[in-house]
Write a protein that binds this DNA or RNA. Structure first.
Lengths: 242, 242
DNA sequence: TGAAGTCTGTACGTCGTCGTACATAGAGGT
DNA sequence: ACCTCTATGTACGACGACGTACAGACTTCA
């Protein structure tokens, strides 16, 4: 079976029973996800589902005015394309690559075929979807009540959890688009974090120096999402990250 | 079968095939949902699922500080207790009755038993869950970008869609808690709407006089949710409401 | 080496919402 | 009729985020 090792880097795939893996894996192909690539647009009928390994994909809604807001973020703990098995076939959001990397994709129909066997894949995907729901709900809360500074911390932590190492490759402009705030707002917040010695950044590269402090500066939203994800997706626990 | 007529007032139940109804309905009991009743608390293991008829239930997150934010709203188009069949058994949000009325409840295990037959109920519930996801996503967007005035309009419309008539029974204080804003902010916004002749209110009773205008004053979020709900839940179309 | 483009820093006035405080008015009970 | 409670109205300073404008610094490429 090709890519067998790489496929295991997606925790959701790795958690599937061997027989399910044997049916699915032969049909999966690896794809490079460059920064900014749009996997699907609002209203598009989904053709593939994507399982990221070291890539991160953001689901965001783009308003009529062009302004945007991130709904949730997906990395190696999950998949992009939930609407396929939920029955809607499309969503109102856009899926865009927020951190370049590798993913595996599978024809939607193949996923649905396996889903409709009503075995382990169904239960795994539904649990993942609930984790996604929790993240979306907390995004709504965070948007309502928390400052840009707090939201930036939350966002950095969510991204960090889905990457190896402690470096993020992304400009402040990009972060601003995700959070749905001005770029200057991110500059201010990031400047404060840098002065506190929590992060260090330079032209699109952000090093996290003090993760513990970052967590303490974040609002409760990160911890809520993280805790619920760990509960719902035991296979994806980031136990090495404190 | 008892309550047969009443049960049909929940559009999701009404849309189920007869054989599914015949298995489920005998186990359902009607319950009064008084204003403010908490159906479940954050972290509670869900025991029942609830199918509202003329009641409206809000899912909201309560922060450590006590402040809250509504995540989504559920009426006769759906059910409360999605986490039961998604596999998590509990959620991070609270379910609280926002508009008193009647609902039918069913033991969670009964629902799961039928869900695990992998028939019509499964597909219906998953489609409903996707509609719920859309609503939550749009709540996040709305919280980020829109004014209290716009959000109030959206919120009134969402509630109106789930009730008969054009009167809402709810104080500004309650609305403020749902939207996660100050009561004074709601007073200001509602005052403006009243001066425009769109609504008329008096001590906890709000009459909507000009629904069309209300829609035009609302942000795009309402239309997005409504359109997607109509698409995903064809059985729940509010075709009589323009 | 110079030019163009990208990324980040800073400033200033405006606006919406917040926190707080207090006033008014209708409803219900005795 | 009186009191009490609840719901709503109004005001004011504070603060965070916005829109806008522009400057500086680094990178890339000719």
């Amino acid at each position: 079976m090709p890519h067998l090792k790489g496929l295991q880097e997606n925790h959701l795939l790795a958690a599937l029973p061997v027989d399910v893996q044997e049916r699915l894996f032969p049909h999966m192909e690896s794809v490079e996800l460059p920064l900014g690539k749009v996997l699907y647009e609002s209203g598009d009928t989904l053709r593939y589902v994507y399982f990221p390994t070291n890539a991160i994909v953001s689901l965001l809604y783009v308003m009529e005015s062009g302004a945007s807001a991130e709904i949730s973020v997906v990395g190696n703990e999950g998949l992009i394309g939930v609407a396929l098995f939920m029955g809607g076939e499309s969503t109102t959001s856009r899926a865009i690559v927020q951190s370049a990397g590798l993913a595996y994709r599978l024809l939607g129909q193949r996923l649905k075929d396996e889903f409709n066997r009503h075995g382990a894949l169904l239960h795994t995907l539904l649990r993942y979807t609930q984790a996604l729901i929790t993240q979306m709900a907390q995004t709504a809360v965070c948007n309502r009540h928390h400052s840009i500074d707090q939201q930036l911390c939350r966002w950095l932590l969510l991204s960090l959890d889905r990457l190896e190492g402690n470096e993020l490759v992304m400009t402040q402009e990009l972060i601003a688009n995700m959070l749905g705030v001005r770029r200057e707002g991110v500059t201010d917040a990031a400047g404060r974090l840098q002065r506190l010695g929590v992060i260090e950044y330079h032209r699109g590269r952000i090093q996290v120096l003090d993760r513990a402090k970052l967590e303490s500066l974040s609002c409760e939203c990160y911890a809520v999402v993280r805790k619920e994800s760990d509960r719902l997706l035991p296979w994806a626990k980031y136990t090495d990250k404190v």
